[in-house]
Design a protein around this nucleic acid. Structure first.
Lengths: 206, 206
DNA sequence: AATTTATTTAACCATTTGGTTAAATAAATA
DNA sequence: TATTTATTTAACCAAATGGTTAAATAAATT
């Protein structure tokens, strides 16, 4: 594969990423992807045989971003639990600040075809056993049951993700459509959410 | 309008609700709505002129469910703050247990066309000034700034909604696709989330 | 029974869309 | 320079889709 080809391929993937993430599989148009990539439809199909093939690549890629090294983070042993939580929340929110439409995209597509989901897990580097192990270990540290720890993890993730998934609504209702204020708000949440989570732990440990 | 007509109209709306909520505007097919309603496409268009007109009615209706009497609840003065929170969380989660795809539907459509959102607010019974007033009052009770209270409200809402929006993912990863266990989990959250929220308040008030 | 109204049938239309093809052209490589 | 490769052009195709129409039929109303 020549440099040129690599370049074009990357340009197509970049364009596809943008269009798919914004509009989803159903809403995306191959013509729009071609336009965005600065090429024509014929060449687009010359590189990627079908819309769905192209979509699969993007979805897999983005699913990988959605589940970052959180496993690594939450399981590494040499920092305090409090610092782990702060690092996790801050990194996770940072990912979404860089990829603001990632949450709504994943939610959309995961609901569109829930049955086909599992096949994407392995390919996007998701290890189910590892995740369960992390939760089990966390449960020990927190002196909680597995079930309680699961609530805990989902609480943490909810607090990180939802402000991105519901942004258009929240921004209009509670921020008077002020985008820069909303960005500030999202930035604040790196510490607000972490503080919040940690404060509940201190109560429980008493 | 005869009873017959009312009946058919309701049947169409019911079918449209189901299909639109599951597949969104882009993914829904008029033929599928007709089939679901047990009628044909001609009659469907005889009752509702276009796909978008029909969609608008459904979206507006569902947006109304998405913002329930939470304003009423959080502002009524004769119960303690703790009880208000418990009632709000429990009622809010109940709504989503009855309408499991409501969150993903709203998230999907709100991202598809954010600009057109505002025009739906009034029609679906949403009073922006009222909401801001509720937050201001809440802020006084919590002895917090408006900004902190906004975080607080969004935390509460995030914890209620996200487990529905992300269900296909969470269920597969953390619940081994066990639907009934997930339903139990959602039911549990009525108290888990409320406890969680209230526990953070107790710390803050010290 | 006559008439109006609701519903079906089924053909049809225009547009959009994913995808293909073959020839022309530009760019890189041997 | 000759040849291979990447890209464009533009016409084309088949299927899907939203929407229409007109006539037939069934059901309710007068």
């Amino acid at each position: 594969m020549t440099e040129q080809q690599k370049d074009t391929e990357q340009q197509i993937l970049k364009a596809a990423r943008k269009v798919f993430i914004e509009k989803g599989l159903d809403g995306a148009r191959m013509q729009e992807i071609a336009d965005e990539a600065g090429i024509n439809k014929a060449l687009l199909h010359y590189y990627f045989r079908s819309k769905y093939k192209l979509f699969e690549m993007i979805f897999q890629e983005e699913l990988g971003k959605f589940f970052p090294k959180m496993v690594t983070l939450m399981s590494s042993g040499d920092i305090s639990l409090e610092d782990k939580i702060r690092a996790f929340v801050s990194n996770y929110i940072s990912i979404f600040i860089s990829n603001p439409f990632l949450p709504s995209f994943i939610i959309k597509e995961v609901h569109r075809d829930p049955d086909n989901l599992k096949s994407f897990f392995v390919k996007s580097g998701l290890d189910l056993n590892m995740i369960r192990l992390v939760i089990t270990n966390l449960a020990k540290q927190l002196n909680m049951s597995f079930e309680e720890t699961r609530h805990f993890m989902i609480n943490m993730i909810s607090l990180c993700i939802f402000p991105f998934a519901g942004r258009p609504l929240i921004e209009k209702i509670l921020f008077s459509e002020d985008k820069s204020e909303y960005n500030k708000f999202l930035e604040e949440r790196k510490t607000v959410v972490a503080d919040y989570i940690i404060s509940t732990l201190k109560i429980n440990s008493k």
